[in-house]
């Protein structure tokens, strides 16, 4: 039974892979079938995932096991979650704005410190570079400092890009586009490796034409 299940699973996966790839030709019933299956199954999967990996371990179990303040404080997120369901009833739908406001506020507040500590400060520190003489390291440092400064100035919105600021912004966008080009090529290679992985599945597991 195990091997039969494996065979059926492999053929089903192969069929769905080909159905999704048929999108490259044009929209067709096979793609529609695979698409609707994918959306439906994944929506169901995430429902179960949230129930068993978020609600149960982070709310239900702690509420049953904790004592004192740590137990009763859980009523707050539980209440916010229940209030979200008030959208089902038009008369109380406005209540759902409270948990939304809470989520947005907490996200924005946490983001300030996290971004300062995780991005701004380390990147500023890494850009504090001097020229130590006439050598390649100094040239590299110079390019890095010029690139960072002009890129930041491109994203300066309080003044029109004219005059000196216009020139620096143009230099900045050149740096940005060069980095985009490098990123494009790098990511494209990663995507090709994904495609190779899928083709390997079709040729190896499904058709068995390669080992």
């Amino acid at each position: 039974m195990g091997s039969l299940g494996m065979i059926i699973g492999t053929w089903l996966a192969g069929f769905l892979t080909l159905a999704i790839l048929s999108f490259l030709y044009k929209d067709n019933p096979f793609y529609k079938l695979a698409e609707h299956l994918y959306v439906g199954v994944s929506a169901g999967y995430w429902l179960i995932y949230v129930a068993f990996f978020d609600v149960e371990p982070m709310l239900v179990t702690p509420f049953m096991e904790e004592t004192g303040v740590e137990k009763w404080i859980l009523i707050v997120p539980a209440a916010l979650g229940v209030i979200m369901l008030s959208r089902w009833f038009p008369k109380t739908a406005w209540l759902s704005r409270w948990p939304i406001a809470f989520t947005v506020g907490v996200g924005a507040g946490l983001g300030i410190t996290a971004n300062l500590q995780g991005y701004v400060v380390p990147q500023v520190q890494a850009t504090l570079l001097p020229m130590t003489g006439f050598n390649l390291v100094s040239l590299n440092n110079l390019i890095l400092v010029v690139g960072v400064v002009t890129t930041i100035l491109y994203f300066y919105f309080s003044k029109a890009h004219k005059g000196v600021l216009g020139v620096t912004a143009k230099i900045g966008i050149v740096f940005i586009m060069v980095s985009f080009g490098a990123s494009f090529g790098y990511t494209l290679m990663a995507r090709i490796s994904l495609l190779i992985g899928r083709l390997y599945f079709l040729l190896s597991d499904l058709l068995r034409v390669i080992d």
Binding site: L128, L129, P130, V145, V149, I152, L153, S158
Partner: peptide, 24 residues
């Protein structure tokens, strides 16, 4: 945020000038 960006740019340029003159 724009003002903060200007501060960062000034700081980077100041450090670059100070460090470079120091090494020269």
């Amino acid at each position: 945020q724009d003002l903060a960006k200007l501060w960062i740019v000034y700081f980077i340029l100041l450090a670059f000038v100070v460090g470079t003159i120091g090494y020269i």
